[in-house]
Structure formats: structure tokens, C-alpha cells
Amino acid sequence: MTSSRLLLSRRRLLGLGAAGAGSLLLAGCDRWSSSTSGFRDVLDRVDELTEGAQRLVMGDGALAREYSEADISPYFRANGNVRVNDRDYNRLAEGSFADYRLPVTGLVDRPLSLSLDDLRAMPARTQITRHDCVEGWSCIGKWTGPQLGPILDMAGVQPAARFVMFFCYDDFGNTLSGPIRYYESLGLRDCYHAQTILAYDMNDATLPIPHGAPLRLRVERQLGYKHAKFLREIRVVDSFANIGRGHGGYYEDGDGYEWYAGI
């Protein structure tokens, strides 16, 4: 009798303890998830581990799978910004981007200013690839444009360079300090990957505005948010520590997405 009562109370205690631990755990996890927590730094470091492991198995050269014409998605979902609230951009769009120029700046020997005609005159790569959004969905599309590597070579990347920033025309509305326009970054080796192109055509037609006209980045071995749309400027840098909050991209800075988006 005594022992069974003891057992019951022990059980109840354990049950209470488990429930208490559970709610504490959940509250703790919420706090640990916040960007100011030290544990968040630990979580962020996992991205470096993942990148290291993935680069080890895929190397610099492995290509993302390329599909056939029959696999192209009948309707490719447009995500992120599907229009741009920027006066300069809209003026360019009205003129079918005839006056569009893409500056290539930063740590380069010969800064460039490329028109769409310049870009279309360069050797182009066409690839039918699967676009994977961080949210979980995928669409297959056909992209055409020059590889980024030769453009960087044309500009002459300086030895100190490590990253390339992609600045865009689109923003997600006003913040206290005004609109923050989209930006992304890649390490140099991803810039020189064969499938890293600046796409001006999608599915054999001029790149539509919802998909980032006149020019968007394609970096096929990473998730959709790395594929910066509405390109405004390409800048070669040695570090992005002083750009935004220093995490290398709009979503990396604002929402805490991983800089390496290979998973």
C-alpha cells in the first residue's frame, strides 16, 4: 500500500516534472531562437558545417541537374517581389530597358557598364533547371544569359576580392530608415560555376517583370532567395561585414536565413 502510494506520487511528480520541463523547453527554445541569443550563434555556425560538408562532396564543378523541354513547369510561380516601386526602374521598364545599364564595380581593374545589347552579344548559356524555394516548393524553367565568370574576368577581379554583391531595384516597403532594396552575395567560386548566369530570357521569351526583368542571377545549386532579381549593380568586395547587418543578403540580415543556401 505504502509502496504503491509512493509510486503514484512519484509518478505524478514525474508527470508534473515532464509537463513543466516541456513548457520551459518550448519557452526556452523561443528565446534561444531570437537573434540576440548566444545559442543563435551556435545554430548559425551549423550553416558553415553544412557548407563545408556539401562542398566536400560536390566540389566546385558539379552541375545541378538539367531537365528536358517537356519538364518545364506550365506555370512558374513568381515569388518575392513581382513588381518594383522604384522611379528609375519604372522609367527603364517603360522604355523596354533600352537605357538599362549594369555597372560592375568594386575591386575590379576595369569597371564596366553593360547594356542589355552588350550582354546579349556575349556567349550565352541556356539551362533548364529546377528552382527550389526556401519555402519548400519547386518549379522548372529555362534560363538564358551570359555566364557571370567571363563578365568578372572582363572587369578584372583584383586579388583581394572574395565576394560579389548583387544589388537590386526591388524593396519590401519602407522601414524606419527608408526602403531597403534587395541585395544578395556569393563567394567567388560560386560566381565562376558554369551554371551561374545572368538570365535575360526565361522559357525562350524576354524575362518577365515578375521574374526579375531585365536581368536576374541564376545560381542553380542554391535556394531561390540567392537568385537576385531586378539586378541594379554588381560589386566585387573583400567582405560584406559593413553591408547591411553584415550577413551578406537582405533575407540573411532581416530574417536570419543562412548565407549558404545549399540545403
Binding site: 523561443d30 531562437s33 545554430l43 548559425d44 551549423v46 550553416d47 536570419g256 543562412e258
Partner: peptide, 16 residues
């Protein structure tokens, strides 16, 4: 996890 809608944090926890 976390309880609020936060895909980025969910992914960090998941991969950790």
C-alpha cells in the same frame, strides 16, 4: 519550433 511563424529559425533548429 519556435512557436511563432519563423521559417529561418525553424531551419536552423532542424539542421542543427
Amino acid at each position: 519550433l519556435p512557436s511563432r511563424q519563423d521559417l529561418a529559425a525553424g531551419r536552423l533548429w532542424h539542421f542543427f
